[in-house]
């Protein structure tokens, strides 16, 4: 087995590890469209990074984070419903990113790999970034686990009981932006949400507690990456979409279980 497939495997497993628990929050808090919007804005992050010659790892995390904070601001002003705002921002970010990339004359950016991931081109330095970010995300999730569950159940109740709701909410956005930044390499901006919510939705069917669901989702996401890479290796299909297809197959398989309530 050559190095590149080993790197791809390690990168995929690192992202899957954190995609599981974060995906659970995306499902519990009905943030799928929100996640999609942040993921699309990561493409804008790439083009801005290239344009201004900034390290791409920074811009693909910073732009979604700025987008998230902007969304909170716009939602609080109550101009439009969150759904509509997300629709506007999501597609404008994607379109602006694509337009900016096309305007860069000297740079050849592989659009397909941005949109659908390029797992097989992972380098050692990518691996360092992925594991540093994944470690940070796991640490944040462990420290904030209880308040995160608490604000997911009922924000006002949590606030009255002393939880700093807006700080915890901002931290969750930061976590989401970080995970999107590393997941982009694996499945691309168009499929990130799938990597987040499909394993979580699959895990729901066999879980009784939030913790059980988060850990199961992590395991399922890693299994999905293994299967997807195997499929890509043996059938010669694109890696990112293969991972998502395997996730969807596992989800369908999980439907034979009676949902635990």
């Amino acid at each position: 087995m050559t190095n590149f497939i080993l790197y791809a495997l390690l990168a995929g497993l690192g992202v899957a590890l954190v995609a599981g628990p974060l995906g659970c929050f995306v499902v519990w808090r009905r943030m799928a469209y929100f996640g999609d919007t942040l993921a699309h804005s990561a493409l804008l992050g790439v083009s801005i990074g290239v344009l201004l010659d900034i390290n791409l790892s920074i811009t693909v995390a910073a732009i979604p984070l700025l987008m998230a904070l902007g969304l909170v601001y716009l939602e609080q002003r109550g101009i439009l419903s969150l759904d509509t705002l997300l629709g506007i921002l999501s597609h404008s970010a994607l379109a602006t990113g694509l337009v900016l990339i096309s305007l860069l004359p000297d740079v050849r950016v592989d659009l397909m790999s941005l949109l659908f991931g390029d797992l097989l081109s992972v380098t050692v330095s990518d691996l360092w970034v992925i594991y540093a970010v994944a470690g940070t995300v796991i640490l944040l999730l462990l420290v904030l686990w209880k308040p995160l569950i608490n604000i997911t159940v009922h924000a006002d109740l949590a606030e009255v009981e002393g939880v700093k709701v807006s700080a915890v909410r901002t931290a969750l956005m930061l976590i989401t932006a970080l995970v999107i930044a590393i997941a982009m390499k694996i499945v691309g901006v168009l499929l990130i949400t799938a990597l987040l919510i499909i394993p979580a939705a699959t895990a729901r069917r066999v879980s009784n507690t939030p913790e059980q669901m988060a850990i199961t989702a992590s395991i399922i996401a890693m299994l999905t990456v293994l299967m997807g890479l195997g499929m890509s290796w043996y059938v010669d299909t694109p890696a990112g979409p293969s991972v998502v297809v395997c996730g969807a197959l596992l989800f369908m398989g999980s439907l034979v279980f009676r949902q635990k309530s």
Binding site: V27, W28, T152, V153, H154, D156, L157, T209, P210
Partner: peptide, 14 residues
Amino acid sequence: YMPQKISIDPSLPI
């Protein structure tokens, strides 16, 4: 505090 209503997504096993 007892809030007026509470809706917890069924996807959260609790």
